[in-house]
């Protein structure tokens, strides 16, 4: 059963159609990355799932129950984008306050608050006012409050925004740890390299429409291309390969070998060995997520991410 499920979800803000028939399913224990340009509808989708925004049509379910109910919210954690914590709190008192709203008993609240703040590296500053925290520290605190009550599903909207590379790595480690514990994570991020490193599934939203979705490995795989490298000083027999129906194009120090449908790479290896050549590098070529994203967005609506031409007066 899906932990997060939407069917033909639509949201209309007066004249703006923020979401158009979005249907997604996220399985338990998975990390789902939702990609999209600014204003694509990513945050709206999360807000509908949490009941912060009302849906216009369609269905949305969380943990098998209608999305947005108080009972469901007890089992989810959320870090919003551009969050603003009440700065009169310290990191510790904020977690204590949110714990109170989540009906976590006092003793457990205090214990969990320390644990969580230690996990995100804020224990040393936990009694300082939030207004003295850097952006990265606030982001870490955001992660701490999202996972404070041991939720089953965690929604993270741009969790690494403003965090330094070391902090990002730590946040990735926390996400991995949550995944290992069987938690489901729904991630909105612009940092595609981050998403690529951590997510199992991704969906791409374009102007409120889910234009692509799937397993990240499958999506980034390029069928029929391999990157091959020979020992230094050796030359690739391109003509022989061409005669067998393979294409070979130089790619830096390596070669990109094109394999037609129905063929595989083994005959190429056999040929190279027969010629006494040593294969030092061989991998199936993949697209980066960024390439996939740009390509998908361009395909869906060519020119959409380019600046609008200026109107002449």
């Amino acid at each position: 059963m899906s932990v997060i499920a939407t069917r033909d979800l639509a949201k209309q803000y007066r004249k703006i159609q923020a979401l158009r028939g979005v249907s997604i399913n996220v399985d338990p224990g998975h990390i789902y990355g939702l990609l999209g340009q600014n204003g694509a509808g990513k945050t709206t989708l999360i807000k509908i799932l949490l009941g912060i925004t009302n849906l216009t049509s369609g269905d949305a379910e969380l943990l098998g129950q209608p999305a947005g109910t108080a009972n469901v919210r007890r089992r989810i954690g959320y870090l919003p984008e551009d969050h603003r914590f009440p700065d009169y709190h310290s990191g510790w008192s904020l977690l204590d306050f949110y714990g109170g709203l989540l009906s976590v008993p006092r003793g457990e609240r205090h214990r969990r608050a320390e644990e969580m703040l230690e996990l995100v590296g804020l224990k040393g500053r936990m009694h300082y006012k939030i207004r003295t925290y850097s952006k990265g520290m606030k982001q870490r605190l955001g992660i701490a409050q999202a996972i404070f009550h041991d939720p089953q599903v965690v929604f993270l909207d741009e969790p690494t925004d403003g965090v330094d590379p070391v902090g990002r790595r730590e946040i990735r480690a926390i996400m991995q740890q949550l995944k290992d514990q069987g938690k489901t994570i729904f991630l909105n991020s612009h940092l595609l390299s981050e998403v690529e490193l951590i997510c199992d599934h991704v969906g791409i939203l374009q102007r409120g429409e889910l234009i692509r979705e799937g397993d990240i490995k499958e999506l980034t795989e390029l069928q029929g291309f391999f990157v091959l490298g020979l020992a230094p000083g050796q030359t690739l027999p391109r003509d022989d390969l061409a005669r067998q129906g393979y294409t070979a194009t130089p790619s830096g120090e390596h070669w990109e070998i094109g394999v037609k449908d129905g063929q595989n790479i083994d005959p190429v290896i056999d040929l190279l060995r027969a010629r006494g050549l040593s294969v030092r590098h061989l991998v199936e070529k993949r697209q980066t997520l960024e390439e996939l994203f740009i390509e998908t967005v361009e395909e869906a609506e060519p020119g959409v991410d380019r600046p609008m031409p200026r109107k002449r007066k």
Binding site: L50, G51, I52, R74, P80, D82, R84, Q145
Partner: peptide, 14 residues
């Protein structure tokens, strides 16, 4: 306030 209300509304309280 924007950014603060989301945090409150995501909590299990009507």
């Amino acid at each position: 306030r924007k950014g603060a209300v989301d945090l409150m509304l995501a909590k299990p309280i009507h």
